[in-house]
Simulated assay, not measured.
Amino acid sequence: MRFAAIADIHGNCAALQAVLEDIAGLGIRDIVNLGDCFSGPLEADRAGDLFLLLDMHAVQTVRGNHDRYLIETPADALASSDAHAHAQLAPRHLDWLRKLPFSTIYLDEIFLCHATPQDDNVYWLEQVSPAGHVFLKPLEEIEALADGIEQPLILCGHSHIPRAVQLSDGRLIVNPGSVGCPAYDDDKPFLHKVETGHAMASYAVLEKTPAGDWVPEFHNVPYDHMAMSRLAAENGRSDWAMALATGRV
């Protein structure tokens, strides 16, 4: 059994197309999407049409926190990245978002959510110090959030950091990284930066071995990231332009 996991596309249609081509080149047809599909100063409308096409091919998607903002927050109250995406999205895209589940189980043995099973806006595998340092969360805290989940493979996104964590009972939690946003800063829970240090699109391939173990393989895909960086700059977002150009903020 082999499939691909993508997450945190953030309206970066060029990155999404490159990743889908890379996945197809590996002969993989099954894909799961862990959310945050549109928010950003890029091409939410083009990404939306591509997601609708993927939905026709039974790509399983769960809703991210920014996906939720787009359907629950009044347009005039949206933050800038969400507002830019909302202005581009058609009713068909928003209707698709409304149908997405918060979490789901894929192929009977894989649990999917955007951030954690309880909250779509909390890092599962990372924590942030008051000084703004982002580091691996203690195992007991990670395991506490996985309480009640029986599936041997758990997939999450949200932090944009590719990472795999083995729980003490053998379950594996994997974050495939971000397709469309390699760096950002945030002020919750404390002001901090997340930086991959490269401008490539990230995703993961998950394969089940004959022994029944799940093994992640992390992929980085080059694409015309400078075109997206220039688009972000044209749309007044120098922070995104830097992130897309360098993987740093």
Results as ranks from 00 to 15, higher is better:
90 A>G: 11
92 R>C: 13
92 R>M: 09
93 H>Q: 11
93 H>N: 05
94 L>K: 08
96 W>E: 01
97 L>W: 02
97 L>A: 00
97 L>R: 04
97 L>E: 00
97 L>Q: 01
97 L>S: 01
98 R>N: 10
98 R>V: 02
99 K>T: 13
99 K>S: 14
100 L>K: 05
100 L>G: 03
101 P>M: 03
101 P>L: 03
103 S>C: 01
106 Y>P: 01
106 Y>T: 02
108 D>G: 05
109 E>H: 14
109 E>M: 06
109 E>P: 09
110 I>H: 00
112 L>Q: 02
114 H>T: 05
115 A>C: 11
116 T>A: 06
117 P>D: 02
117 P>A: 04
118 Q>D: 02
119 D>Q: 06
119 D>W: 05
119 D>Y: 05
120 D>V: 06
120 D>P: 10
120 D>L: 10
121 N>G: 04
121 N>C: 09
121 N>P: 05
121 N>R: 07
122 V>Q: 10
122 V>M: 12
123 Y>T: 01
123 Y>G: 07
123 Y>Q: 07
124 W>S: 01
124 W>A: 03
124 W>V: 00
125 L>C: 05
125 L>G: 08
125 L>E: 06
125 L>P: 10
126 E>A: 13
127 Q>R: 15
127 Q>S: 11
127 Q>A: 08
128 V>R: 14
129 S>F: 01
129 S>P: 15
130 P>K: 12
130 P>E: 12
131 A>C: 04
135 F>R: 12
137 K>G: 02
137 K>V: 01
137 K>Y: 00
138 P>E: 08
139 L>Q: 13
139 L>V: 15
140 E>Y: 14
142 I>V: 15
142 I>Y: 09
144 A>C: 03
146 A>H: 08
147 D>T: 14
149 I>V: 12
152 P>H: 14
